[in-house]
Amino acid sequence: MGSPGKEAYFPRGKPGMDPRFPLGPGNRRSRILGGGEGSRSVWVAVVSTLLFFAVVAILIVNSPGWSAPGGVRQLFFDREQFMSSLPKILGKFWRNVFIFCIAEVCVLTFSLLLAVMRSLPRGVFTPLRVLSSSYTILFRGLPTILVIAILGFGMPALELQGVPNSDYFWAIIALVLVYSAYVTEVYRAGIESIHPSQMAAARSLGLTRGQAMRHVILPQAVRRVVPPLLNDFIGLQKDSALVAFLGLTEGLRQAQITAATNFNFTPYLALALVYVVITVPQVLLVDRMIERDQRKRLAGGVA
């Protein structure tokens, strides 16, 4: 038990805990349900949540367009359509997985390079800095679908020797170009968040600028930006659907085909479900990574 003075310092939670995490870093359940005040508040939270969603469901199901012939229930929630389109969509969704996995690896590498270029000292390196910053300005300004359309339809038309004409190739290039621009900024924010004194300290120990970057700055910078990196990765996963524009039959295009053939939107709902299902574990994983990292750093004594 701590002294009264210590309790005053930790107003909520048990003594000895970090004041920034009054509920403890790993206590997710109570964070979502707003608990921490005993079982009564948990029950209220559960009842209130159920009631809320029940109201929403009643509102939707009783709307005039829900059960009419050709209404929302028939056109969006058709069981038979769902069951028949889901395997087809999943079969084509692997192409999205292929596209965004390859693209993500390229994005992480390419943008790290650009971010490091951006952080080089002024002087001789100014052209590289300018190149990097104008790249991010240009590609953050361009809608992804335009980049995909311009590259996907334009580049094969050039009939360049030795350049693949595959839709996959140009789709991946387009996604890498666009997402690298965002991710470069994320990395740069991470690098700039590391106090300059660390670079100075590393240099004073005899490390070169490159070594200091590699061994001191980047490991900390990257760890700090994991959540925004995941944000962009999820964005990339979703934007892989834009590849449908090129005529490549991936998840979205498969859903569109089935929807247009049968005049039924249920396949879109099936695809939406697939996206949610793949996103949830990623978010949970990164949440856990962050918590573990925080615990580790706190355990080290010096935050």
Binding site: L51, V55, I58, L59, S63, P64
Partner: peptide
């Protein structure tokens, strides 16, 4: 809190009452 729950219940009643009016 109680007011919030009452509000939700009211909303439920309103939802049930006003929704099913198809324009046939």
């Amino acid at each position: 809190m109680r007011r919030y729950l009452v509000g939700l219940a009211l909303l439920a009643i309103v939802a049930a009452a006003c929704a099913p009016e198809s324009s046939t």
